[in-house]
C-alpha cells in the first residue's frame, strides 16, 4: 500500500462538543512509560540470549546479556515507580493479582524477573553460586518473553483508539522490537565470534516487528492514522528506516566487521526506542482528537440501525 497522502483516510465530518476530546489523555509521563516499554523488551529478550549463550558456551555474550536483562529490569522498575503519582505506594501493586489488569499481571512478572535476572547477573559477575545463578537465569528466561510482551496488553486494554484497535498486532510489535533491542545491544558489546546469535535475534526480531507494524497500518483504518502523521508518524518512520538500514548492514557485513556490528547494533537499539515512543505518542494523539472516538463509533451505530431497519422493513 503506498504511504503518505494517498493512503490516508479521507477527512470525515463528525460532531463534537466544541472539538474537545472525549477521552482523557493518558497521564502516563514521557519518557518514563515509553522508556519502560523499551527496557522491558530489552530485558526480556536479553534473558533469552543469556540462557542460550550459557547453554552453548558463549561466555562474553552471556555476560552482556545477563547484565542487559538485570540492568534493563532495574532501570525499568525505576521508570515505572517514578511514573506513579504516589511512588511510595508502589507495593500496593502487589496487594492483589487481577487478570483484568495488565499492570497488575505485569507487576507480578516484573518483580520476580528483576530478582532472578539480578541474581543471575550477580552470580555471573562474581562467579559465586554458579548453579543457583544458572537456575535464576533459567527462571528469568521463562519470565522474559511475557515481560517483553505484556506491555502490549497494558496499552491495548484501554479505550485509547490507536492502542486498543491494534491489540492483535501490538504483542508482536513489542516482542520483535524487544528482540531487536537485545540483539542490537549485544552486537555492540560482544566480540564478533560470539555475537552470531545476537545478530540473528536482531534480524529475526526486526522482521517480526516490521511485519506486525505494517499490518496495523494496513488493517486498522482510521485508528492507524496517528501512526502515520505528526510527531508519532515521524518516530515510526524513523524506526522503520533505522531497522531497514541496520538489517541491511548486519546481513551484509555484520559477521566480518566489528565496526559495522557496533553501528548496526546501535541503530537497532535506536529503532526499538523510536518504535516505543512512536506508539506511545500515537495513542496520546488518538485520545486527544475526538475524531478517532466519534467516527468509528458513529459508523457502528449506523450499521446497527441499518441492519435493524432491514430486518423490520
Amino acid at each position: 500500500m503506498p504511504r503518505g497522502e494517498a493512503s490516508m483516510v479521507p477527512e470525515v465530518e463528525f460532531e463534537s462538543y466544541y472539538g474537545r476530546p472525549i477521552l482523557k489523555e493518558p497521564t502516563w509521563k514521557t519518557p518514563d512509560v515509553p522508556l519502560y516499554l523499551f527496557l522491558g523488551g530489552l530485558a526480556g529478550a536479553s534473558s533469552l540470549l543469556a540462557e542460550g549463550a550459557a547453554l552453548t558456551g558463549r561466555p562474553d555474550l552471556e555476560r552482556v546479556a545477563r547484565l542487559a536483562a538485570a540492568g534493563g529490569a532495574a532501570a525499568g522498575t525505576v521508570a515505572l515507580v517514578h511514573d506513579l503519582g504516589r511512588p511510595e505506594r508502589f507495593l500496593n501493586m502487589l496487594r492483589v493479582l487481577k487478570p483484568t489488569s495488565p499492570l497488575s499481571v505485569g507487576s507480578f512478572i516484573l518483580a520476580p524477573f528483576s530478582g532472578l535476572a539480578g541474581a543471575a547477573a550477580a552470580s555471573d559477575l562474581t562467579g559465586r553460586l554458579p548453579r543457583l545463578g544458572r537456575l535464576a537465569g533459567a527462571g528469568a528466561a521463562a519470565l522474559g518473553p511475557p515481560l517483553a510482551t505484556y506491555t502490549a496488553a497494558l496499552l491495548a486494554n484501554t479505550a485509547v483508539p490507536a492502542w486498543h484497535e491494534a491489540h492483535r498486532e501490538l504483542p508482536f510489535v513489542f516482542g520483535g522490537s524487544g528482540a531487536q533491542a537485545a540483539g542490537g545491544l549485544a552486537m555492540m558489546l560482544v566480540p564478533l565470534d560470539q555475537a552470531a546469535p545476537a545478530r540473528r535475534m536482531a534480524l529475526a526480531g526486526a522482521a517480526v516487528e516490521i511485519a506486525a507494524a505494517e499490518s496495523i497500518l494496513l488493517r486498522r483504518g482510521l485508528a492507524a492514522e496517528p501512526y502515520r502523521i505528526g510527531m508519532p508518524g515521524r518516530l515510526m518512520t524513523m524506526a522503520r528506516n533505522c531497522t531497514a538500514v541496520a538489517s541491511a548492514a548486519t546481513a551484509l557485513a555484520g559477521r566480518r566487521s566489528r565496526l559495522v556490528s557496533v553501528l548496526a547494533g546501535a541503530t537497532y537499539v535506536t529503532a526499538s526506542l523510536a518504535t516505543r515512543f512512536g506508539i506511545f505518542e500515537a495513542g496520546r494523539a488518538s485520545a486527544r482528537d475526538p475524531k478517532y472516538v466519534v467516527v468509528p463509533q458513529r459508523e457502528r451505530v449506523r450499521a446497527r440501525q441499518g441492519a435493524s431497519a432491514k430486518m423490520t422493513g
Binding site: 526480556g44 529478550a45 533469552l48 540470549l49 540462557e51 542460550g52 547453554l55 552453548t56 528466561a141 522474559g144 518473553p145 511475557p146 517483553a148 510482551t149 502490549a152 501490538l170 504483542p171 508482536f172 513489542f174 516482542g175 520483535g176 524487544g178 528482540a179 540483539g183 546469535p197 545476537a198 540473528r200 535475534m201 529475526a204 526480531g205 517480526v208
Partner: peptide
Amino acid sequence: GAATLVGLGVVSF
C-alpha cells in the same frame, strides 16, 4: 507474541 519471542530466541542459536 511471547511464544514468538521464544521462537526467536531458539532460532538465534
